[in-house]
Design a protein around this nucleic acid. Structure first.
Lengths: 62, 62
DNA sequence: TCGAAATGTCACTTATAATTGACACCTTTA
DNA sequence: TAAAGGTGTCAATTATAAGTGACATTTCGA
């Protein structure tokens, strides 16, 4: 899994708001948060920047 | 860009060897190293683990 | 300096990420 | 009690990641 939902909620953002910031559809954010698929690197980078964090914090499991 | 090529060469691996370890085609590694496209998160994770490093080291630019 | 391994790239196909529109369900507030 | 915002999910389409086979060039050790 990943930590997108946690970080998004900590920032008080809706899925829609995050999606608009990153420039993707709301459904795409929803699917990523629920582990339903495998986002592209570019999208991961966009989400990390929009949430003021980095790739490891959101997507890395030791 | 990214640092896949640097890390791979430091480990003395060919594109083919890394591709086999990760389970993708050699061309896929070549395209990623040359910034020709946008790999999936799953593939980025596989490459990071195969090279004994992490997402930020390979793909994060401040 | 020859030959093999490694790399870069092409065309084509297949798998899947991502989009769009829609609907049901839930919670909160007027 | 109903209206609005937020979420989860569905089906259908489009965009693109990834695979396959092939070939030319470069690199490097015997």
């Amino acid at each position: 899994m990943n930590h997108v939902k946690d970080y998004r909620q900590q920032r008080g953002l809706s899925q829609l708001k995050l999606a608009q910031t990153v420039g993707v559809a709301r459904q795409t954010i929803n699917l990523i948060e629920n582990g339903k698929y495998n986002p592209s690197l570019k999208l991961c980078l966009g989400i990390a920047k929009a949430l003021g964090t980095d790739l490891n914090s959101l997507f890395w499991e030791e």
